[in-house]
Write a protein that binds this DNA or RNA. Structure first.
Lengths: 264, 264
DNA sequence: CAGTGGTCTAGACCACACT
DNA sequence: GTGTGGTCTAGACCACTGC
């Protein structure tokens, strides 16, 4: 449970106790190692999304380091959005449910001047079935060609206007038993459902955007013609360990919505 | 130069010296106040882009706080990309020149499988003139309608293909004397030029993306037809103090490039 | 009130970059 | 070697939460 050369808790010198870091080759600071250990516990499900993790003091005792070192490790986890700190209460495992921002990965916002977003989106699942992955699908997900994947196609409707047509591919192995029923009727973000039902939490994602025109079928589903420019958003979502766990391709209507991004 | 109730450097108690923070109402931690003071010096141009700022120890003495407090302030400035820390050398004011990533705000990348990016983009300035701002232009820039703005239109060409058509609007007041010559022939990012020549550094930006089709003129300039879907990127760039300083509207061809975004 | 995260300090040592 | 940022520790106090 301790870290490399165990630093002694009851060190008698006033100086730093037995260095807990290897010498020059591949040096990694103590707090990074602690961060790694906490990350492991997070992955292993020792503390589940929404739950309280042990206090800084407890973790410091457990790993036999000072509270300040644990603090710096947790600071980075909080910066990565893996945990939330709440003064006076404790540190909680981050979750896609009950988060201040619902739909954390959806960057599409209604233009100002439009009517209200009418709250939640309406979801229609058009298809939900298992199939063998083509190379195009399996490669980004890190699967072998021909492995089982779950394909979901759905439409998100805002204020009565069909706005997003999404195709979602999930590794079949990890999401056994996922039904169209669950996709349809789970109250809240899909990512929250995957987290609750399958214990798999999407931690970060990479998106590639393009402007495209729809084919006949896509156009019909979105109630536009085949000349209407649409925003194609290809998203690869990762769980812990940078393991890709979802491939998603969305077609967004941008006539009364826009995709927002902040740069710094 | 000190902060609120001056903490004494030579405090005799082993406890925290005279608290440097006001009581409950509008409490702000000391390191935030230090961050604010450093930010002021940055804005005032006391240290220019690319220059070395004083060492943590020097700043600690100047503001009469401990090195750790200065460190935390600088940590946040570094997280905001306002300064760069280099171990063994010091802390430097961030700049758009000579940065590890050129074109920090440009998210368009060549698709894999394409030929090399052929290094730098080729720039053609089509127009560069002063005019009175319409409401549409002046509002986002925080100007009054009719105030002078500089309008630049240009094309960026990658590997021989005209790929980006950009319209740029800058407050006329702040950028007196900017010429097409400078826009054309400055070696390096435009933001680096604005920084060097006018001392105005863009610190962050907000973008709104849409899929659109070009009008006849735009289509001709980009060598596409008027049915080709293009990515419209509207960017508002800010300098220190969240002051908007540039409005830019780009039309991106996404047939062999894509816009990349990371979510977390 | 006790317990938690948040702030601040002070001092020692490590890793890196110049000279 | 000297000076810089980077890491680690230890202890005290502050601010927030809930019993």
């Amino acid at each position: 449970m301790s870290v490399q050369a165990t630093p002694l808790a009851e060190a008698t010198t006033t100086t730093r106790p037995e260095a807990a870091v290897l010498q020059t080759p591949a040096f990694s600071p103590l707090y990074q190692q602690i961060k790694g250990l906490i990350l492991q516990s997070l992955q292993a499900g020792e503390w589940k999304p929404g739950e309280l993790i042990p206090s800084e003091m407890e973790l410091a005792l457990r790993y036999k380091v000072s509270q300040g070192t644990v603090r710096k490790a947790i600071d980075e986890l909080a910066a990565d959005n893996l945990v939330n700190r709440r003064q006076g209460k404790g540190t909680f495992v981050a979750t896609h449910s009950e988060q201040q921002v619902q739909y954390r990965f959806l960057q599409l916002h209604p233009d100002v001047g439009q009517q209200q977003d009418e709250g939640r989106a309406q979801r229609h699942v058009l298809a939900c079935r298992r199939l063998r992955a083509t190379a195009q699908i399996s490669r980004p997900l890190g699967l072998r060609s021909g492995e089982s994947v779950l394909h979901v196609r759905r439409i998100l409707t805002f204020a009565g206007t069909p706005t997003i047509l999404e195709d979602i591919w999930l590794p079949g192995q990890a999401f056994k038993g996922l039904t169209a029923e669950q996709m349809m009727h789970y109250p809240g973000p899909t990512y929250a459902m995957l987290e609750m039902e399958f214990g798999i939490r999407m931690v970060r994602a990479e998106e590639k955007l393009r402007a495209v025109t729809p084919d006949a079928q896509q156009a019909e589903l979105l109630h536009v013609d085949t000349c209407t420019p649409l925003l194609s958003v290809e998203r690869l979502s990762y769980t812990y360990n940078d393991q890709p766990m979802e491939l998603r391709r969305g077609l967004y209507r941008t006539d009364s919505h826009h995709y927002r991004n902040s740069l710094s």
